[in-house]
């Protein structure tokens, strides 16, 4: 069964139709890259799936169960919404770290708040919190920032901040991790460190959806590539098909500009 299935997603801002019936699906452990020029709707697609925008039409399924249906009238409770939200992790283009917290505090904030709601939290408080801290340190170590755990975001480079934000998303153990142009806000010499982290996650079969402009990287790391233009999926397939041998004129035009 597909871990993520998106069916006929529509999104309009006023009269502008940004997504026109976008559908795709992916399997567990797969890495899907979404390519397309700015304004093609790829970021909006990501934001709709992650509940940051409300799609005007369509459905989203995770592991076969519907987590979003635009035609549904019922409004899920905040608790249900959170549970659905936590299927996903999202890494933002502009990191959005919390400036008043250290790298480690950024990573542990949400897990600690979640743990506080557990029934056995009071009895095992110390143990639970130290597990969360330990897990967060392991994640920071994994993105190569164990020594920076005590630093505030303003003391870190853009690449380091983005790596902290990846660790922060991983700390909640999402089923699918989304990246919204994770290297676009970075100086070119810093993109490499982010791409290395994503590759490392790929080698551990993390299910990921990556919106990116890094064509070469997408070709290397992805199992599947979607090319979007004008709010529709123009072309979909393996990297060899979409990048190596594009069938559509629009894909070819885009790739010739980018490569």
């Amino acid at each position: 069964m597909a871990i993520l299935e998106v069916k006929n997603l529509h999104k309009s801002f006023g009269k502008t139709e940004v997504l026109k019936s976008v559908s795709f699906s992916m399997e567990k452990g797969e890495i899907l890259s979404i390519l397309g020029s700015s304004g093609s709707g790829k970021t909006t697609l990501l934001r709709c799936i992650n509940f940051l925008e409300k799609a005007s039409g369509g459905q989203v399924f995770v592991d076969g169960s519907c987590i979003f249906d635009a035609s549904s009238k019922e409004k899920p409770s905040p608790a249900v919404m959170r549970e659905r939200q936590l299927n996903f992790g999202l890494v933002f283009q502009s990191f959005n770290l919390f400036p008043q917290y250290t790298a480690l505090e950024n990573v542990v904030l949400a897990p600690k708040l979640q743990a506080a709601e557990r029934a056995d939290f009071k009895e095992n408080k110390k143990k639970i919190l130290s597990e969360i801290e330990q897990n967060a340190m392991n994640l920071l170590d994994r993105v190569g920032l164990a020594e920076k755990a005590g630093n505030y975001p303003c003391q870190l480079s853009g690449g380091q901040q983005q790596r902290v934000s990846i660790a922060r998303a991983l700390a909640l153990d999402p089923k699918i991790l989304f990246f919204d142009e994770p290297t676009s806000a970075l100086d070119p010499e810093l993109t490499g460190e982010i791409l290395r982290v994503i590759k490392d996650l790929a080698s551990k079969h993390m299910t990921m959806v990556i919106v990116t402009h890094e064509i070469e990287f997408a070709r290397n790391v992805s199992d599947k590539i979607i090319f979007m233009d004008g709010g529709v999926v123009v072309e979909e397939g393996t990297p060899e098909q979409v990048i190596g041998n594009p069938r559509h004129e629009r894909t070819r035009a885009f790739l010739s500009k980018m490569l």
């Binding site: 940051l52 933002f92 770290l97 922060r168």
Partner: peptide, 27 residues
Amino acid sequence: IPVGQYEAGQVLGLTKKQVFSKIVLFQ
């Protein structure tokens, strides 16, 4: 406060109250 702070809180599963008290208020 940049909207990204609220969004980051939301995708981390924080309630609206927690986003305000744990992230926004101090800033």
